[in-house]
């Protein structure tokens, strides 16, 4: 089962990146649409969305398997000349684990352009086998095309990091996405993701504010086909998210998130 999981989606070390359940529920997109601090791992430019300190935690299991469980935490906050964030994440179990630390810096250059950069440290541990680490750099952008349309994207591991004595390459990923807000209560997102080894993934999804304190999400990703759904509840400064995704051969994957905004 573990081999099947690796061959379908999690094909190499550090393919799993921490994700905000709201983005997961909107079609497994990796753009940080809801400005949850967890999303800064993948989308460094989203750090410029945090006008207040925001802390986020997330936990879940891929395909319902304990050995693919993950937990993450991140804190994002404005600083004097821009924005900053840091976070940590762990994926796996006591036999195999991938730890990730990140430090993100971002700046809003105009009301239409934000750039973010992330310094990542990847730490791989395999019980009775050893440990290896590597540094990666992520760069992202967020550009406002007009009042309803944004172009967002990032390059993951642009420095081409390798890990271990075999110098195995860590995944390099390109993402380009358009987010469209046709009405104030709804968003639509289309994301193209290209891991340099695998086929492109096109993901699309949306979210809708059902009530002032409830948002629902749904979406779909191709190659492989996965359908997703999620719900978010806002209570004062607290945000609670839950998302799940299907897979044609494997069990459901679950994400649970909690966010707190210091206003």
């Amino acid at each position: 089962m573990y081999v099947l999981c690796l061959s379908t989606y999690l094909s190499a070390a550090f393919e799993h990146y921490p994700a905000d359940p709201a983005a997961v529920g909107s079609g497994l997109i990796t753009i940080n649409i809801q400005a949850n601090a967890i999303g800064i791992f993948a989308d460094p430019a989203s750090v410029t969305s945090f006008q207040n300190r925001h802390v986020g935690v997330s936990s879940g299991k891929r395909f319902g398997l304990s050995l693919l469980k993950h937990q993450s935490a991140a804190l994002a906050f404005p600083v004097k000349n821009g924005y900053a964030a840091f976070g940590a994440s762990i994926f796996g179990d006591e036999h195999y684990s991938e730890k990730m630390w990140c430090l993100i810096m971002g700046r809003q250059f105009s009301d239409r352009l934000s750039i973010g950069m992330g310094l990542m440290y990847y730490d791989l541990q395999i019980k009775n086998y050893g440990q290896a680490g590597s540094w990666g750099i992520n760069v992202g952008w967020n550009m406002k095309l007009d009042d309803t349309l944004y172009w967002r994207g990032y390059w993951r591991n642009i420095n081409g990091p390798t890990i271990g004595s075999a110098r195995e390459s860590l995944p390099q990923v390109l993402v380009s996405a358009l987010t469209y807000t046709p009405i104030p209560q709804a968003n639509v997102i289309v994301e193209w993701e290209q891991d340099t080894i695998y086929d492109s993934r096109v993901k699309f999804g949306g979210q809708f504010n059902l009530l002032p304190w409830v948002t629902i999400h749904t979406g779909h990703a191709i190659s492989p086909g996965q359908t997703t759904a999620g719900i978010e509840i806002n209570y004062k400064q607290i945000i609670i998210n839950y998302a799940l995704s299907t897979h044609s051969h494997l069990d459901l994957s679950h994400w649970l998130g909690l966010g707190f905004s210091f206003r």
Partner: peptide
């Protein structure tokens, strides 16, 4: 400029 040709493994 960043460019990747088809099947190249480095995004830059």
């Amino acid at each position: 400029l960043l460019e990747k040709d088809p099947w190249e493994k480095n995004i830059a």
